[in-house]
Design a protein around this nucleic acid. Structure first.
Lengths: 231, 231
DNA sequence: GTATGCCAAACTGTATACAAGACCTGCCGG
DNA sequence: CCGGCAGGTCTTGTATACAGTTTGGCATAC
């Protein structure tokens, strides 16, 4: 299994995905192929492939003969995203719980993360702590995804991650929220490590519910309306 | 909103998707770009785009520098597919139930389908009846997808449909199963029309459970093993 | 007879040229 | 002054040429 060098299409795709996640490419921004060719140094063929892939992932809207734009974020899209995650991720964490019960190595990995989360609480509130927490939370989410047995479930959740990340980067980080969120992650970890699949799923559901609540409070939008946000 | 002429990439994509669904392109079949160029009359660029799209949908496997193959069907992939559908489709039918309760036109549409299912029972068992039933079941599934509010849920289920269709076309139709399946669809319809979201979801879950059972009986494989089936 | 190394053919990844449609600007008519 | 039309420019969709890599076969050595 020699690691192939990533193709230019891969590179352009990864670069654009990151820039969209970080909000450097704002929702609604126009992505002309020629402009991307200049920016990335690749030719139109890999650029096109990257754009098509991003469109399949929902990060880019593609209008025939009109080109690509960074997909917009509406209150409705946020609600849809979290509703969908609430459907999928508890199921994934159930599978991860079973996997961790059967695989001691995996169990240790999750135990280490639980301790890392607990360690976060000892630090004084700061943007540095916020960032290290979100990094840790990302690693935890990723570990859950990897431990998910079902291929469709795994792929679908993985595809949602950039959307969630973008939302977090577009909205303001809420230092208050970190404190609570750590606790919620600890609850999920504890249930997972105890082999309590239902408990882990329930804790994760609760975490998602509160995250959505916080996001809407910060965006000052209400879940019902369908106006464009952030752009 | 004038309907744009579909691009060549669209055409190639649709054609290949259909051939894979119908089993005319067997699992594992090699799809060289040049061969597809000859077959479809398009040039490599649209062919490549179609292949990439099919890969994103999971219908073809794409190995770097080695080309595309029609994705294989394993006992495990079948189990994963149905497990995932069991997670998603009950949620979708819940949303469809709510939508039908709120929209009289939609309610009438589903009522017409219920009657059509009931009418199927009057016909004598035959391959013609089987086909008309599956066609009807497809239209019903599609109507549920369209009535699904959540965009992610709708797109994801829509992407699974070709996989299910392929499975049905690769395995033998079971005339016995039609009789029972009609009843299961009727149960879903009745609950949906009565506004009983939980009932509709439960009936659909049961339908999926039995469908999977039948498929595994027909394929003579067991859900646990992970050997390649059908080609 | 088997294994190994090399060569050639084929294929994918990439770049670029060509064609056709969409958008914008500026002019003309009302 | 405003609206519609025409030309030009820019963009995307498509075709094709070019380069690097993989694969399969054949010959040769053991």
């Amino acid at each position: 299994m020699t690691d192939l060098a990533p193709s230019k299409a891969d590179q352009v795709h990864a670069q654009l995905k990151e820039e969209i996640e970080l909000g450097e490419l704002a929702p609604g921004a126009s992505l002309s192929e020629l402009w991307l060719v200049e920016r990335t140094g690749a030719s139109r063929t890999p650029v096109r492939e990257a754009l098509r892939r991003l469109a399949a992932e929902g990060l880019v809207d593609l209008a025939p003969r009109q080109g690509a734009r960074v997909s917009r974020v509406s209150a409705r899209s946020v609600r849809d995203l979290f509703e969908f995650r609430t459907l999928l991720e508890p199921a994934a964490v159930r599978q991860a719980t079973e996997a961790a019960s059967a695989d001691p190595g995996l169990h240790r990995e999750f135990a280490a993360m639980r301790d890392a989360f607990a360690g976060t609480l000892d630090q004084a509130p700061s943007t540095a702590r916020s960032r290290s927490f979100y990094e840790l939370a990302d690693r935890f989410d990723w570990a859950v995804v990897r431990a998910t047995r079902n291929e469709h479930l795994r792929r679908t959740i993985a595809e949602l991650r950039p959307h969630t990340a973008r939302l977090r980067n577009l909205s303001h980080l809420d230092p208050q929220r970190v404190e609570v969120s750590v606790g919620e992650h600890l609850a999920v970890c504890d249930a997972l490590l105890a082999g309590d699949a239902d408990g882990a799923a329930a804790a994760l559901t609760e975490h998602l519910r509160r995250s959505l609540e916080t996001i809407f409070r910060n965006l000052a939008g209400s879940p019902g309306e369908d106006v464009d946000l952030l752009g």
